[in-house]
C-alpha cells in the first residue's frame, strides 16, 4: 500500500511537471504570442516589438526562461499579466473561489437527486420507473450546458434580472452570502442538470451490479429484507463506485464551468481562462490553465487514494478511474 501510494504520488508529480512544461513550450514556441498584447499600431513597429520582448524577458535563451518559470512557480509566482501588469496569481486567486462556490452549489443540487434517482432506478430495474429515470438522466447528460444556459439567461434574466449573476459587481461570499448564492443560482442549476444525469446513471449501473453480486444473494438467502439488503450490503459495496462518481462529477464540473461561466459572465476560473485567451493575455491564461490542471490532477490523486482505501482491488485500475468528459 505504501509503495503503491509512493508510485501514485510520483506519477502525480510527473504529470504535473510534464503538463506544465508542455504548456510552457507551447506558449513560447508560438510566433507572435509575445506581442499579441500590444495594440496593432504598436506591434507594427519592429522597434516597439523588440522593446516589448525585452521588457518581458523573451529575448533570453529558452532554457533560462524555463528555469525562471519553474522557479517562479515554486514560489507561487504565476507570472504577470501582459495587459495590466498585475500578478497572474492575483487574478487566479480572485477567480478560483468563485468557481469553487459554483461547483459546490452545482454538486449539492445535482448529487442528492442523482443518487436518489439512481437508487430508485436500480431497485425498479427494467420496469417503467427505471425507464423514465434512465431517459431523464440520458437527456440530462445530453443537453449542452451552454444552450441551456443561454435559454435560462434570456428567459429568466429578462423577467427577473435580480436572479442573474450580477455583471459588473460580483459579490464575494464573505461580503454577502445570500447575494452570492442568489447570483450563482442559475449557473448552478444549469451545471446541476448534467451532474444529476451522470450521478443517476452511474449510481444505477453500479447498484445493479452490486445487487446482482454474491453477497447480496447471500444476504437475501439469509432472509434479509430488501431494505436491509440495500442499506447494509449493497450501498456499502457500492462505495467504490460512489468515489468514482465524485471524481466524474468534479471532472464534469471543471469542463462545465468553463462554458457556463462564460454564458453567465461569472468571474470564475473558466471565464478567466477563456477571456484571457481572447485578449491574448497568455500569462494569465496559462496561470488559469495551470491551476485548473493541478487541481484536477490533485483530485484524481485523492480519488485514487480513496478508492484504494475503500477497495484494494481498485489499486490496479485506480489510475484510470477518472476519465473526464471532453
Amino acid at each position: 500500500m505504501t509503495r503503491w501510494l509512493i508510485v501514485r504520488a510520483a506519477a502525480f508529480v510527473l504529470s504535473v511537471v510534464v503538463g506544465l512544461s508542455g504548456l510552457f513550450l507551447m506558449l513560447h514556441t508560438l510566433p507572435g504570442s509575445d506581442t499579441a498584447g500590444l495594440a496593432p499600431t504598436v506591434a507594427a513597429n519592429p522597434e516597439a516589438r523588440a522593446a516589448a520582448r525585452r521588457a518581458q524577458g523573451l529575448d533570453r535563451p529558452l532554457v533560462d526562461q524555463y528555469l525562471d518559470h519553474v522557479r517562479g512557480l515554486l514560489r507561487g509566482d504565476l507570472g504577470v499579466s501582459n495587459s495590466d501588469g498585475s500578478p497572474a496569481a492575483d487574478a487566479v486567486a480572485t477567480a478560483a473561489p468563485v468557481s469553487i462556490q459554483l461547483g459546490v452549489m452545482a454538486a449539492t443540487l445535482g448529487l442528492l437527486p442523482g443518487l436518489a434517482a439512481g437508487v430508485v432506478a436500480a431497485r425498479h430495474v427494467h420496469r417503467p420507473g427505471d425507464g423514465t429515470i434512465r431517459l431523464t438522466a440520458l437527456v440530462a447528460v445530453s443537453v449542452p450546458s451552454y444552450w441551456l444556459a443561454v435559454l435560462l439567461l434570456v428567459q429568466v434574466g429578462n423577467r427577473w434580472p435580480g436572479l442573474l449573476p450580477q455583471p459588473g459587481g460580483f459579490v464575494e461570499f464573505s461580503e454577502d452570502p445570500g447575494a452570492t448564492v442568489q447570483s450563482l443560482m442559475l449557473p448552478a442549476v444549469v451545471l446541476a442538470v448534467g451532474t444529476f444525469g451522470v450521478v443517476a446513471r452511474t449510481t444505477r449501473s453500479a447498484l445493479i451490479e452490486v445487487l446482482a453480486g454474491d453477497d447480496v444473494l447471500f444476504a437475501r438467502a439469509m432472509g434479509m429484507t430488501e431494505r436491509q439488503v440495500l442499506t447494509r450490503v449493497a450501498l456499502r459495496n457500492a462505495a467504490p463506485a460512489a468515489v468514482t462518481v465524485v471524481g466524474l462529477v468534479v471532472a464534469g464540473l471543471l469542463a462545465g464551468t468553463v462554458l457556463v461561466e462564460n454564458v453567465f459572465q461569472v468571474p470564475g476560473l473558466g471565464q478567466l481562462l477563456v477571456s484571457s485567451f481572447s485578449r491574448h493575455d497568455y500569462p494569465v491564461a496559462m496561470a488559469a490553465a495551470t491551476v485548473t490542471a493541478v487541481a484536477y490532477l490533485g483530485l484524481n490523486l485523492v480519488v485514487d487514494v480513496a478508492l484504494a482505501l475503500v477497495d484494494p482491488r481498485h489499486r490496479v485500475h485506480a489510475a484510470r478511474a477518472n476519465g473526464g468528459s471532453t
Partner: peptide, 21 residues
Amino acid sequence: TLHHHSPRATVDRRRFLGLAL
C-alpha cells in the same frame, strides 16, 4: 482604437419568449 474585444466570449441576456423551462 483597434477593436479587438472578442464578442464571443461573452453572452447576453435576451428577451425571447415562449420557452417553457
